[in-house]
Amino acid sequence: MSFISQSSPHAHATNSTQRVMLTVVLATIPGALAMVYFFGVGVIINLTLTIGFCLGFEAAVLYLRKRPIGFYLKDFSALVTAVLLGLALPPYSPWWMIFVGCFFAIVVAKQLYGGLGFNPFNPAMIAYVVLLISFPVQMTQWAAPVNLGDLPSISEALTKVFTGTAIDGYSGATPLDAFKQSESLTVADIYSQKPIFSEAFFAGAGWEWVNAGFLLGGLFLLWRKIFTWHAPVSMLAVLALMSIIFYDGSSESSAPVLTHLFSGATMLGAFFIITDPVSSAVSNKGRLIFGGCIGLLVFLIRHFGNYPDAVAFSVLLMNFAAPFIDYYTVPRSYGHSKPRRATEKVDV
């Protein structure tokens, strides 16, 4: 009998790409549940649509590229992109907008670059930014959290998504919007006048719990060693530091630290977006820099820029810079006195 012949090692750890991806999806559940609670059935519709479209696009492109469809669908990377995009888009978004988003995420940002592992940018963030620039009105209409208004019923929601019929009184400003739009007020005024803050516990009504949910999921992923702590901690630390430095309570002031940390896409970004290994820096040192720069950019755009939130832009900007960071954070190899960069000539 002839036994199989293969290269060592013959033992393998039990982790797999599928498992990593599924764990990430699993970890979004607390945040997603909070979103469903506060923003209603629209979140579920979003997720259903993104998952359907993304997997559909993935399968279609794989078919066109003559790749085994089952094999690649089973790595669940399209599922992760779909879930992240679904959570990032405003609930009750029109279906065609989601369709366009999924197209950009899967077809343009991922498969056109060569599929999983080859995409320089985070697909979900590409889709988000494309939609934000193309359809600013729809993209800035967030539902008001449940404690500030009524949530649409399922039929209302479906009508809204598929026919575009407006529903009265469901939308409202997000905490970051509220801050941006009230430039003449001091922080204390904002907190007492704006219901989104006055009804809140520590950051913004509803949003604080959504962010807390994603934080919880992120900690779960850290515990499961799906990624290292470097990038998220660095991003949150820089964001917090910046908001402390620029906080003075006046009308020019930055939002308070907790508002920054627990509003918008901060936690989703910190634990689910910037930890995407494909498009981030590789080494731990590189990830510290990568995360820190994102934190800085998020603050700069939120505070000085025109957009209320900035996670997507910051992530894409730093995706650009990831290879550059990698180049300057080459670790020192065993037996070498200093790191050797790839551009240096070797004597053969």
Binding site: S16, L116, F118, V278, S280, P331
Partner: peptide, 11 residues
């Protein structure tokens, strides 16, 4: 499967 650049190998 494709490399997802997770960096576990470098660690």
């Amino acid at each position: 499967q494709p490399c997802i650049r997770c960096g576990l190998c470098a660690e």
